[in-house]
Design a protein around this nucleic acid. Structure first.
Length: 880
RNA sequence: GGGCGCUUAGCUCAGCUGGAAGAGCAUCUCGUUUACACCGAGAGGGUCGGGAGUUCGAACCUCUCAGCGCCCACCA
């Protein structure tokens, strides 16, 4: 017995526990079937589920369940990411509350603390994924710092190193002065800020009273200047090229050089060159062999190469300006809108800094990764994202992979006494190589840097499946079927997976990459903790059920667009679940038990044949749309069928049967209703796994669990079964509409005389009389002999057939109707003119497809007939 | 500067191959009826951002103008 009220909390968690305990999420490895696999984008191990995950993982679960129901061998590979900086940051913050810094603990103790934190909070997000209904194979859960995955990381690293694709270099990198580490270009966010432009002048050496005018936004970097550049084409200034100028305050002489980096149109036309602190200047410096003067400490304070050692850049800037003013070389200060780089995690200004770092030769790795997208081996859905991908990949820069952090994969690099590098998968091998290299035992020192988190994420598609070991999972499931992720992750992850997979496996990591948008708040604003506009998916689930949230995500997911949260809409989908719940109760109350191996094609009754055809059409629609990754279309197809067709019409149409006398009709209708409900649960299951399973367990008699029930493809559909009932529905709708328009009370039973009607329609009417009278609240309906026939599409709007309906009971005011008919008539006249014009257009008649012309003629004829009828109707009601 | 996308009902958005404009929510009217008021029936509401072009036919294709958003790069 179903409870009276739909209450998802009663069963959602229970059902999930059953699935997981019964091993329903595990692939059947013995079976020789088609394989389908998705690797989950690993959430941060210590994170909590947000709406972005809810979207991402709902879409994946839909695909997973849909494919599982097609009898495929399905694996959804779950796991979490160690998220280097993010996790280290959280743990450091916790320690800070106790007044402890990571340096107090030391590296080993600190890492231990992080592991403890991981043990303690690491299960949160996976629990939340379960609550959402994600049918991952949890027995295979992986973590990027697992022994197996770490081994994969070391192996790839060593291979890349030995292939010359990883190298160490002293380069200008993005330096995060809060975390004291280098970060990659992608982890830098540019922010629009209103800054200032400072204009001042450097005296020309040996020429009293001569100056070169400089403009800069960062005067404090002048102590690192090693040249001033002027374009050779700059007529006003190029006479200074070759001379020297003096940096004030420190009185250092630097050359004035010719370089086109100095745009005569910008600033003063002369640019101070600070090669150690600016990416452009670095390039200029390389071209001219300029010395590098580093003026910053790692914490972004100025160092002893400046007069202001120990000061922050802002403090030093103040000092510098004051001093320049005092020296009389300061000219002016202007407001200047500019873009300043910040660390995406630390939020501090990122300084370009010269340091030793490790790089992956991304441009080389990108070549294969580009090729397999160009030739269509890996396809983006929507396709337009491949442009974004190409754009980035074709301009890719070496990837800085070393991080001066503690939490992460420590690089498999050892240094000998003379700094000779040994790169091996483990310490023993490195030691052996070193001993051999030096001809004696030596002490090795391991590189302390760890790898960028995305290095290990890049291996995720194959490392989780068991690589570098031989693995059945790898054989069956690699390349995986599809990767589902947000557009903001294309560069961070998709691109790197492509590069790493093409390098390590020589094969693509996934055949398709489905990219979705962001989940925003109701107003379309990006959700963020700082704005306080985040919505916790767990609270939404608590309030409306996981099914409602999932359906919302699916129904809103249209390719290439962001999703705005809408509580009213989620409520709407909870209502949808309630509706289905009540429809199932209706079936239960009328003893609609599903019959094992019921042959639905044996149904005789028109309404039953009709709903069966409709159900099959809905199935096809869902199937086609899911195959094309059109989630919203698929979801809406089920929604429309369940609510608009099954509940609104079929249940109502079945009532006269259930409340009638004919037992054989009743029996058939019971079986068919049960069959349809069964079908609904089947096609709705990927979207709403909980309610469908709960109902299935209560109503279905099939001895298979819904999660494994067979999806039905390529059925034959008896579309002829649609006509009669569709006609009746149009008729009923029209009568209802007319009744409302004419203000006839619902209680008033009408007598309807249907004028015309050919033999077939008369038969239909006879057969469906009960239904039509009951649903349209009629006393009776009868056909009146006449000279024109009724076809289903003629009854689309009864107003066009106004003479068909003559209310005999109740007082009816026709004035509104008269007005309406007159309007209709005017419209019709306009249309008739239009048709005539079109049909007399020789170009149209000759060039449009014959059927289109026919259609136009048919419409013209119809319009003319309608016109006649309306005129007739007007004449009739003239007496009222 | 380069790229991508958006503009359709009051709101949020669908609309796939060019063939008589759709959904949900909101609004208004009415509710006989035992699956459901988290409901039912009905209604109103659109110059598909503006303009031009291609076509027998354009929300859809082309050009153009305007507005909005995102990504990348740069800005002394």
């Amino acid at each position: 017995m179903l409870e009276k009220n739909y209450n998802p909390k009663d069963f959602e968690e229970k059902i999930y526990a059953d699935w997981e305990q019964s091993g329903d999420f595990k692939p059947d490895m013995r079976a020789n079937k088609d394989n389908f696999a998705i690797v989950i984008p690993p959430p941060n191990v210590t994170g909590v589920l947000h709406m972005g995950h809810a979207l991402d993982d709902t879409l994946q679960d839909i695909l997973i369940r849909y494919n599982r129901m097609q009898g495929k061998n399905v694996l959804w590979q779950p796991g979490t990411d160690h998220a280097g900086i993010a996790t280290q940051m959280v743990v450091e913050r916790n320690l800070a509350k106790q007044g402890i810094s990571r340096h107090d603990l030391g590296r080993e103790k600190f890492i231990e603390t992080v592991w403890k934190w991981k043990e303690q909070s690491g299960g949160t997000i996976t629990k939340q994924l379960r609550r959402l209904g994600a049918s991952c194979d949890w027995s295979r859960e992986r973590f990027t710092m697992d022994e197996g995955l770490s081994r994969a990381v070391r192996k790839i690293f060593v291979n890349l190193y030995k292939d010359g694709l990883i190298y160490k270099a002293k380069k200008l990198v993005n330096w995060d002065s809060k975390f004291l580490t280098a970060i990659s270009d992608l982890e830098v966010v540019q922010k629009e800020t209103l800054g200032k432009m400072y204009y001042y002048k450097y005296p020309i050496e040996g020429e009293e009273g001569e100056f070169i005018h400089i403009a800069t936004t960062r005067p404090e970097t002048m102590f690192g200047d090693t040249a001033v550049a002027v374009s050779a084409k700059n007529e006003k200034l190029n006479h200074l090229i070759g001379k020297n100028c003096i940096i004030p305050i420190i009185n250092k002489s630097i050359p004035i050089i010719a370089d086109d980096h100095a745009d005569p149109e910008k600033g003063t036309g002369a640019v101070k060159i600070t090669p150690a602190h600016d990416f452009n200047d670095f390039e200029v410096g390389k071209r001219h062999n300029l010395p590098l003067v580093n003026i910053l400490n790692p914490d972004a304070t100025l160092n002893e190469n400046t007069p202001y050692a120990g000061m922050t850049t802002l403090e030093a800037r103040e000092k510098t300006i004051a001093k320049l003013t005092e020296l009389g070389v300061m000219e002016k200060i202007e407001d200047h809108p500019m873009v300043i780089p910040y660390g995406d995690r630390s939020g501090v200004i990122i300084e370009p800094l010269m340091t030793d770092q490790w790089f992956v030769d991304a441009p080389t790795l990108a070549r294969e990764a580009i090729r397999v997208v160009e030739n269509g081996e890996m396809q983006f859905v929507p396709k337009s994202y491949e442009k974004t991908y190409f754009e980035w990949m074709r301009n890719i820069q070496p990837w800085c992979i070393s991080r001066q952090l503690w939490w992460g994969h420590q690089m498999p690099i050892w240094y000998g006494p003379d700094e000779h590098i040994f790169c091996e998968e483990n310490e023993e091998e490195a030691q052996a190589k070193a001993d051999k290299f030096y001809g004696k035992h030596v002490e090795l020192r391991r590189e302390t840097d760890v790898l960028d988190t995305w290095f290990s994420s890049g291996l995720w598609a194959f490392s989780t499946l068991g690589w570098p070991d031989k693995s059945e999972y790898l054989d069956k499931f690699y390349p995986t079927s599809v990767l589902v992720t947000g557009f903001d992750i294309i560069f961070f992850w998709v691109a790197r997976m492509m590069m790493m997979s093409m390098y390590a496996m020589k094969r693509i990591p996934f055949k398709k990459c489905y990219i979705h948008g962001l989940v925003r708040d109701e107003k379309g604003q990006k959700m963020s903790k700082s704005k306080g506009n985040t919505i916790d998916p767990m609270e939404t689930i608590e309030k409306y059920g996981a099914d409602a949230l999932r359906f919302f995500m699916a129904a809103m997911e249209t390719q290439g667009r962001d999703i705005n949260m809408s509580e009213s809409r989620i409520a709407g989908y909870r209502n949808f679940a309630t509706k289905l719940w009540n429809a199932a109760r209706f079936c239960e109350m009328n003893e609609c038990k599903s019959i094992k191996d019921f042959d639905e094609t044996s149904a005789k009754l028109a309404i039953n044949k009709w709903i069966i055809a409709k159900a099959k059409l809905a199935t096809k629609e869902v199937t086609d749309n899911l195959d094309a990754y059109r989630f919203s279309e698929a979801a809406n197809a089920v929604y429309q069928f369940v609510w608009g067709t099954f509940c609104d019409w079929y249940i109502e149409l079945s009532k006269p049967v259930f409340y009638g006398e004919d037992e054989s009709q009743k029996a058939e209708t019971r079986a068919v209703a049960a069959w349809v409900l069964d079908r609904i649960l089947l096609i709705l299951h990927p979207f709403m796994p909980f309610i469908t399973t709960e109902l299935w367990n209560n109503t279905a008699t099939r001895d298979v669990k819904l999660i494994h029930a067979q999806w039905i493809k390529n059925e034959t559909i008896d579309t002829n079964a649609l006509t009669e009932i569709d006609w009746a529905i149009d008729l009923i709708s029209s009568i209802r509409s007319l009744r409302a328009e004419m203000n006839i009370p619902a209680a008033t039973k009408l007598v309807v005389k249907l004028k015309g009607a050919n033999a077939q329609s008369q038969n239909s009417l006879k057969a469906l009389e009960n239904i039509i009278c009951s649903l349209a609240r009629l006393e009776n309906i009868e056909c009146v002999a006449d000279n024109y026939a009724i076809t289903p599409d003629m009854v689309q709007n009864v107003f066009k057939e106004a003479t068909l309906l003559l209310p005999l009971k109740g007082v009816v005011d026709f004035s509104a109707e008269r007005e309406r008919l007159n309007k209709e008539l005017a419209n019709l006249n306009k249309n008739i003119e239009g048709y005539a014009r079109k049909l007399s257009n020789a170009s149209f008649v000759e060039r449009a497809p014959a059927q289109v012309v026919e259609e136009e003629k048919r419409r013209q004829a119809e319009a003319l007939a309608n016109k006649e009828k309306i005129e007739e109707a007007l004449a009739r009601i003239a007496n009222f």
